[in-house]
Write a protein that binds this DNA or RNA. Sequence first.
DNA 1: CGATTTGTCTATATACATTTG
DNA 2: ACAAATGTATATAGACAAATC
Lengths: 491, 491
Amino acid sequence: MPRGVPAKLFPPHLPGLRQEQGPLHRQLYERLRQAILTGVIPPRSRLPSTRTLAANLGVSRNTVEQAFAQLDAEGLLERRVGSGSMVALPEHARPPDGPVRAPTGRAELAPPLRARGRRVAELPLSAAPSGLLPLTPCMPALDAFPLSLWRRSLQRQSRQTGTQLLSYGETAGWRPLREAVAAHVGTSRGVRCDWRQVLIVTSTQQALDLVARLLLEEGDAVWMEEPGYLGARTAFSATGARLVPVPVDEEGLRVDEGLSRAPKARLAYVTPSYQYPLGLTMSLARRLALLEWARASGAWVVEDDYDSEFRYTSRPIAALQGLGDTGRVLYVGTFNKVMFPSLRLAYLVVPEPLVEPFLRAKSLADGHTALLSQAAMADFMERGHFTAHLRQMRLLYAERRQALLDALRREAGDSLQPVGSVEAGMHVTVKLAGRADDVALVQRAASRGLDTRPLSAHYLGPKRSSGLVLGFSGVDPAALRSAAASLASLL
Amino acid sequence: MPRGVPAKLFPPHLPGLRQEQGPLHRQLYERLRQAILTGVIPPRSRLPSTRTLAANLGVSRNTVEQAFAQLDAEGLLERRVGSGSMVALPEHARPPDGPVRAPTGRAELAPPLRARGRRVAELPLSAAPSGLLPLTPCMPALDAFPLSLWRRSLQRQSRQTGTQLLSYGETAGWRPLREAVAAHVGTSRGVRCDWRQVLIVTSTQQALDLVARLLLEEGDAVWMEEPGYLGARTAFSATGARLVPVPVDEEGLRVDEGLSRAPKARLAYVTPSYQYPLGLTMSLARRLALLEWARASGAWVVEDDYDSEFRYTSRPIAALQGLGDTGRVLYVGTFNKVMFPSLRLAYLVVPEPLVEPFLRAKSLADGHTALLSQAAMADFMERGHFTAHLRQMRLLYAERRQALLDALRREAGDSLQPVGSVEAGMHVTVKLAGRADDVALVQRAASRGLDTRPLSAHYLGPKRSSGLVLGFSGVDPAALRSAAASLASLL
DNA sequence: CGATTTGTCTATATACATTTG
DNA sequence: ACAAATGTATATAGACAAATC
């Protein structure tokens, strides 16, 4: 017969169980678990019945039952109706040794990475997630996000679709979301596509990575806006492509310069709606010239429409993709900025013949994108919450943009000159007078809790302007004003 | 202003609610549901608060709350904290598909992909997600997944952590999850690591892709188990590595064969706990030999522990990673099989000097992994639900495995010979007598709704055995029996 | 047979956080 | 500021079926 447990383990009204220490059933569970694992209650010994233990402890049977059930589920107890509960034999001996020995490989030399690996390992590590520091570029107004509506979409989907949402998803994405995206970019951005051309990915970064891996070979030339978006550089340079800086003027990318510097480039990466970081809009003439070059030379155009939904005065400019022949343009958009960064949903619209190759690339990279977030996003869009949120953010950001500009003018006067006249985006770029060291300034700003980016870091070539990229979308006007004051005091 | 509901609908002590007619909350739910659907309570009318209704009916608020919550879940009610509950407008059918314009780029020729791109574009497209067809390998028992517990973890996290979960996440993963994974693989798999060595990724596929991109150069030789896992092939071959098939015998990978075929290989990919697809366990001698080779030649060992948690009789074998020097071993595990496929969470444990390079690679590939699922997973583990679920699945799969084997023996006799004696995994592989064409058999099986894989497809070299890989984890014993009968009738 | 025990279900009370008007 | 409402969590009480001894 199994022995009973020493009575002293369960004195009446066990003094250790207290309201303040969290749920009673959890405390009891933890305590029993420790006792079993450390052998204080030996294997095969019988525990008191839930009723008697409950009575002894002065708690309800349900409380004890919950603790026992949890232990049973984890295999620490064997319970049988009628015969009671007893401690199970250890299922698997604890691993060779519990305490983690210092990994012996530690003393080794740094691993010898070679060409491709080094290329990846030497990429800049993107800035640490800096919480809610003011001025972070591309940080949405998280406090204004309609979290409860989003949760409802999540909940609704997690209930309704049941096991369909648990199983493997299609590589291209959840079909209702692809349809919703196709409708959205069609009506609000003028992108011409069928839902079958829409691929759901996790981020702009993943989209660009897939593009690079599929369309670029080592040594291929790629037109990059100068100055331009840093994230795009890492994606293209990791494949060994040759990045060709093509200057940007007030009409956007200088196609003529691109033609003279690298006429045979395989790909051009552009942000025509609201150029990053200068905030210009590409002119119609330049757009047509770019498309014509791509058509004639068989190159690809990657249109990153990352910020396009945010335009505050004039109507949004239609996407490049919808302008002419769509056969050479890959359109990239993201939900991570309009919704929230950790959502991890973006989309890629590719010409029909590229759909299959891209599916394989996506399948290679990570199989498919998580389903629940996709289904919730589709639901959120179908119910109109997305459009509503977008509208609200437009109003909010317009206000914040103005607040930042006003504060900068008041505090810093002419020493910080805003670039670009388009009222759009989630950031403004300001130029520093003369050859001021913007990198040093950014560092000094960081020490005051301001998360800004140096304009000069966005250049590939040696000719760099000095300035700051300031995000205004993430925090409220009051914080923007104090940030501007703090910044001005550093000048 | 929304009108109130006619008072007579809710007289005090509503006489219709009786103990004998089933649960009170259910009766209340049914009654309200009928009233709403028939229009007795018109849309947009406000319901009494749960408290007052509970008082009027003489029941507890929880009872009313349950009924309301159910109605809310079905979309019949719109509830808002503070403002009360009102009847929702009937949902309209989904908006019709937008007018699908024919994409103009359609007539173009197939795009001219070149070397790298072709390598990616010619990868096999993984089998379409085939729903719940019987015998699908690696398909978990989704009907047995504790969905309500999981939803609670999701909800709890989406509330508690608030905006922290919305912002950018760390590239390496959500810290509590990294810690939970380190603890789990440490105690239950004998992996020796610090939580800082744990990287959260979306899938085994992504883990292998990162490994390939960081550690392999074009032309590098890689030892692959022969036969072996198909997914691993695509990851490594996409980088242009040379895949060297190394045969597997009853002790696992033939290290001596690897040494003679490609002594200078840069990497070996192995599934030591439960070899895919043959279901063997690698012997201690082989493990030590493999580690010794890696140490001496500076090669990497990738241990894919995809199936290891499922062992049905003997104790789980500790991981290769914990055996000796951990400096050359990269350990890969996944939650997508123990939990559910669309979760998209897996992990990679790398030697300390590789942590930084891998962070950059992950950052390049997709920035970081979605936060909510990570936080929910950590919560699920901390509460012991993960261990409990794992244990339950072990019992369930052991039963299903036996059911499939019994049915196969009964229906097919000797014509389908199960391979391997280890009672583990989520599939069994059976050999076909002689040189039977397993690919054709798989196709015929597919036409009967059976989702199996040909063993011969898992070979790189010309010497192939003919057989079938049969998953037993996804469906219940009855379905397995009828699948076995159906399969036998095709022989 | 009858007492005991687990395991599950229903209902209640209560506390507390959050949001709304 | 304040009251009212929802929404979540914890604990209790009691009933009953099924298994065990």
